[in-house]
């Protein structure tokens, strides 16, 4: 058992999140998948912090959380306003910007 396992777990979680972004159509679920990817990255940062014996990684993870929170707020507001006008939360329905 070494901390490397945390990194491997993080890689798996990140990939699962990425696949989720690609296959799910509900915008909120897509958002949650992005959150999962961010969390995976946070786990990596915390693990690196421990491997290097410095707190900088944890500070980074902290900032990531802050940014993620801001992103969630704005993103959910956008989803809300889109839903209000189009009565749909599917990312496939917003496809007017195309050829």
């Amino acid at each position: 058992m070494t901390p490397t396992y945390y990194l491997l777990l993080s890689a798996l979680l990140f990939s699962i999140g990425a696949v989720g972004v690609l296959v799910r159509r509900n915008a909120i679920v897509v958002f949650m998948c992005i959150e999962l990817m961010l969390n995976a990255v946070n786990l990596t940062l915390v693990t690196f912090s421990r491997i290097n014996g410095k707190l900088d990684g944890q500070v980074m993870a902290f900032f990531v959380m802050v940014v993620a929170a801001a992103e969630v707020v704005v993103g959910l507001a956008i989803i809300m306003s889109i839903f209000r006008t189009r009565r749909s939360a599917s990312v496939d329905d917003s496809n007017l910007l195309k050829y």
Binding site: L12, I16, V19, G20, R24, V29, M32, L36
Partner: peptide, 8 residues
């Protein structure tokens, strides 16, 4: 992992 898979 189970939580992540369950989510998607």
């Amino acid at each position: 992992l189970a939580g992540a898979l369950g989510m998607i």
